[in-house]
Design a protein around this nucleic acid. Structure first.
Lengths: 88, 88
DNA sequence: GTGTGACTAGCAGTCCGTG
DNA sequence: ACACGGACTGCTAGTCACA
């Protein structure tokens, strides 16, 4: 533990898990990445990167996303740890 | 809405709210900023900046914080929106 | 409608210190 | 035990053209 590789892997899992949750909520709302981008004032390709788990958003970006999805940050991240462990 | 000033202000409120929540949970656990820093592998001065609301952490940093506090991310951010609006 | 690589500016996060 | 500062490196925000 504490070595670089395992740390980077766990971060990658975290981002993948977030991406899954964002996509799940976006589809539940029934909008495109483009529409979500418009609603939370984030670039379409940035949303794409988030859903693919290649972006590590800041808190303020996460808050904007939750607002665009019409839910709270806590609701958006509710199953984060579950999704992280699910891919292990 | 949508202008720069109001957007920066709302981001500042978000960070202040997070700082409040981190401090609240840290004190509930009964540990120092330094101890929390050790537990989640983040710098002592960075924890300080977070609690003062002058830092905007990434998702992976938020996850590390929650782990260090022994709670889920969702629990840590549970009252975020409430705290944001409380300071308005 | 989405995935992807590349890009610049700016900030995340560390390490040194002070009071 | 904490606030706060400067300086530093690497990473992130935000965007673009193209597939």
């Amino acid at each position: 533990m504490g070595n670089y590789d395992s740390m980077e892997k766990s971060k990658a899992k975290t981002l993948k898990a977030l991406g899954f949750l964002i996509r799940q909520h976006r589809r539940a709302v029934g909008i495109s990445q483009e529409e979500l981008g418009l609603r939370c004032d984030l670039d379409r390709t940035y949303i794409s990167g988030l859903e693919r788990g290649v972006r590590n958003p800041s808190l303020t970006a996460i808050v904007a996303l939750a607002e665009g999805l019409g839910i709270t940050v806590s609701q958006l991240l509710d199953n984060l740890e579950i999704e992280i462990t699910r891919t292990e």
